[in-house]
Design a binder for these strands. Sequence first.
DNA 1: TTGTAAGCGTTATCAC
DNA 2: GTGATAACGCTTACAA
Lengths: 343, 343
Amino acid sequence: MKSVNIQDIAREAGVGKATVSRVINGKGYVSRETAAKVKAVMERHHYQPSALARSLSKRESDAIGLIIPEANNPFFSGLLTGVSEVLDKCGYTLIIRTSGNDRERDYRALEAMRYQRVRGLIYVPACNYESEQDFEEMSSRLGDLGGPCVILDRPINKLDCDCVLSDNFSGAYAATEALIHAGHRAIGVIAGNTQLMIGRERLEGYRKAILQNGLTLHKPYQITGTFGQKEAYAQVLALLQKPDRPTAFFIANNHSEIGFLNAVRDLRLKIPADIAFVGFDELPGQLVFELPYSCLNREVVQLGAKAAQMLIRRFDEPARPAERLVVVPRLCLRGSEKRMPKR
Amino acid sequence: MKSVNIQDIAREAGVGKATVSRVINGKGYVSRETAAKVKAVMERHHYQPSALARSLSKRESDAIGLIIPEANNPFFSGLLTGVSEVLDKCGYTLIIRTSGNDRERDYRALEAMRYQRVRGLIYVPACNYESEQDFEEMSSRLGDLGGPCVILDRPINKLDCDCVLSDNFSGAYAATEALIHAGHRAIGVIAGNTQLMIGRERLEGYRKAILQNGLTLHKPYQITGTFGQKEAYAQVLALLQKPDRPTAFFIANNHSEIGFLNAVRDLRLKIPADIAFVGFDELPGQLVFELPYSCLNREVVQLGAKAAQMLIRRFDEPARPAERLVVVPRLCLRGSEKRMPKR
DNA sequence: TTGTAAGCGTTATCAC
DNA sequence: GTGATAACGCTTACAA
């Protein structure tokens, strides 16, 4: 890591390093000629100041941390894209870390960010840290960070902090209602991970829509606590083989949706003739194959961009009360929600 | 960015900061009791040293840069995942930046990495920098970086530098040969971006396979220079409507494959009965939908992990000759390559 | 308008 | 074993 430093430049230009610093930062008085001379020397040596030294000296880094559960998931890589675009544009540096949805790794990621003295953090927590103890722990850790934080996608209750969230409840409500409006009466739900708050919110949206529309909740139609594709597959397969199976499903997440689709395929059912549904988020490749699957659509890249903007804004107005942006997912009906006349 | 520093700890523990430093780094002599005392104070204050100061002092940062064209693409987010896993495990910090396949942004990314004084760089270039001038420019910039670099996926000719590449030629050759072995004689190619070397290598693999197997190259069957889905769509649509159309295609990349599939769908052709193919890389969602599309499969996450390992290894052995890892894509035949008897 | 010098939070080199 | 002290490369008063 040996390279020319400000001192070298100063010496060669025959000025003091303060002057070079002024030139670099374009502030403070410095005469036209001196500036030109210094610039020439800098160019000649391809001089690039050290962010390390600069941050240390200014007591303020230009690095921003991003913690996401996984990079290899279209939702999170969409967030990353949005964040990255904004930060690039604004001249910040992006430090990224994944938690694998694991609490310990999440803590380690937080510590790594503190170690790097990030100016701020954009954070998709591995879980919601709901118990009193977990919450305290998390509050303390976020406090130790020493900079602002924007919580993204997965809320942490009671945390007085900027956040960018989805309105999971409304989304689920709208999706379920779309099925009702299409004429369905027997509607099931595949709720996904109800350990996560977003999972529970979606389940509640479904329930509310059912009840508000004069239908009744039917326990066996509610597949909850399925965390992955496999579990969803098995449970959907079982439910669909019963005589009084639902005619439609609201499917609260991607993984479950894939399990569902596999089950439907194995049972040789037709969508939507035999079974209808509305999902949450586009499936990877759904647009590629132009499949007529209805879903709740979130502008994922936008979500990430918003979070980054919010964080940057917070740098300028540290005292402004915490902001809470809740984005309502857009319902995209493409046909899979339809109720077909009995054949 | 105000937090307790090594001085505060030293004062409170009643020792010198050198001692605290020794405790932090676990090297140098320090008595059991002193160490315990210091550790207690550090814990009490949640003390975390500053990577900034540490790097500056050691003249060596633990940040590693990653430059990729886009984050929102399964191939690159797979690389990112692999890189990230290895770096996390080895205690490095990951700084990421995207180029959008744009040369200027690529340069800016490189500069950002230098600014941050990354210890090393993992780099998927925006293009191959093939002209003499571009090459010189790039060499110089990589040299200025002051640390080792691993080139990933897209080679830069003549650059004496570690790299992790795919054997595009062999892959294309194998894919084309699979079509030949399946009984096809009229085989086309959709070569994608022949501006990029990987595009040309794939085209060459196709050509060699055709010739080596006693077939002849037919110009109209070779769709080259298509950069995206739209162009591929239009050209495939045109070609497939000709009377002497190919019975099969080797499709050199994802975007082209999507264009191809759309054209095939719009012409109501059946795969593989009417038209067969083998693609390069899995399509996003291909596995989800369990589509029987044959392709060349690269262990993407592995590729990223390999690059990271190679970089880290280079830190320890700076003098070792440049390493060049060329991974041969694995051919996955799932049915779309078949030649069906004439109906 | 410019230079000097005192930090910023570490590590590393010495003496003790 | 331990503690001053001088780097590291930069910014920022403060003088000049």
